[in-house]
Design a protein around this nucleic acid. Structure first.
Lengths: 227, 227
DNA sequence: CGCAACGTTTCACTCCCTGAAAGTTCTATG
DNA sequence: CATAGAACTTTCAGGGAGTGAAACGTTGCG
């Protein structure tokens, strides 16, 4: 599902490779030296590419760290329209978001044996407010797309009906807070599980004795000997 | 309420005046020419101040548009700890946020007869994705403070308990989506009312037949003859 | 008054990001 | 397989954000 067949032309394969390489290097350098201490020139040099080319792939330095490419975003919108037909919108959003969470956690092993991917990203976000802000900004992009999907699913107009916008904002915020908690706990519990419980809590009106809170975490595994 | 006694020294009064003036001019220029077409130099010149001074007051151009000063943020945190003693956290957050909403709407008349303040800000945000992102980033700052207040109120640790972070993220997202809807509808309905209904919907588990959705808006009043 | 604290300005600098034009590599086609 | 043209990369020139340091002016106070 949502798998990408091997790109056909040489060009497309190269482009994809460069994109992934730039992402990878950005993540690596930022994790090691901090966002502010890595310049676009550093990244470009490490990727054996001119600085200008970096900006042909990503509009900003932040985008190389957090940006979803447009394909993913539109896929998300369509998924929300199509998921759990007949069920309430909140249920559909939960299912889609749990899937997203599963995909994010998979990044962990997708790039190599190291504890990479979102765990590193969020670790960088924790110390640097600017990075945190950049992530929130990126999520706002996604939120817009989710809101559109919801409006279509519900057959309403986001200008007249506050519900799609509210649900989108809340859903994205839920995922984001889940990712933050997950990374703070060192990835011990399973992001999809956290997100699922968070959405269940949402469906129950956010009671203080939610099942989410029984996800007790023993210790903070970040800042271990790594790095 | 939350009023500030007149600053005592000449220096402090001047500083506050400059700060407000920079804010006002930024808002005005951005509303008229768009965020990207206003330089810090423009703002500084209009405020009769050197560009360097601008950055002594605000860390970024975006901050002059959206930034809350630190005092407000800590006040918010304290309000969340103190509000509605004995009541559930969600209730306390609702009360505080409705108060915040009321304050934001008051900006409308606070600066002069013109339709200023948040309505203009959000109008700028609607057309420029960058401004939208900047707003989300700013809200993330606030969210952090809300989460701290909640953790203290509940007597838990945000590293072990996902609940404060989730509630903070959801609450801030709710307010933000309310502001967006409110501005899209031209400020017809009353921001505090929208936010209150949105929080009620949250308490009920976001049902699709929420009372929020009966806030039907006849027409989009923005882009009227003004400006 | 005169001195100390604080705020503002000037200056020099790095980095982000962009448009345009020239150069290079891939693809399609005769 | 040769070659025109599309697509990607690079070089170049430049505007604008943001920062540190030192000179300068203003305010507060003994």
């Amino acid at each position: 599902m949502t798998a990408e067949a091997a790109a056909q032309s040489l060009r497309e394969r190269k482009k994809l490779a460069t994109r992934r390489e730039l992402r990878r290097i950005t993540l690596d350098l930022v994790a090691r030296h901090g966002f502010a201490n890595v310049t676009v020139e550093d990244i470009a040099t490490a990727a054996d590419v001119s600085p200008r080319t970096f900006f042909n792939y990503f509009p900003t330095k932040e985008a190389a760290l957090f940006g979803m490419d447009p394909d993913r975003v539109t896929a998300l919108r369509h998924a929300i329209v199509a998921a759990a037909p007949g069920a309430p919108a909140l249920t559909a959003v939960r299912e889609v978001m749990v899937g997203v969470a599963r995909g994010m956690a998979d990044d962990l092993t997708a790039l190599g044996g190291e504890p990479v991917g979102w765990l590193l990203r969020m670790k960088a976000a924790r110390r640097d407010p600017h990075v945190r802000a950049a992530q929130a900004a990126q999520m706002a992009q996604v939120e817009r797309s989710v809101a559109e999907g919801l409006a279509r699913r519900l057959g309403t107009d986001a200008d007249r009906d506050p519900y799609p916008g509210l649900l989108a904002a809340v859903a994205v915020a839920t995922v984001r807070s889940g990712v933050i908690f997950w990374s703070n706990s060192g990835g011990a519990v399973g992001l999809d599980q956290i997100v699922d419980l968070a959405f269940r809590a949402l469906e129950d009106g956010l009671p203080e004795e939610s099942g989410l809170r029984r996800v007790s975490v023993s210790g903070d595994a970040t800042d271990g000997k790594g790095n």
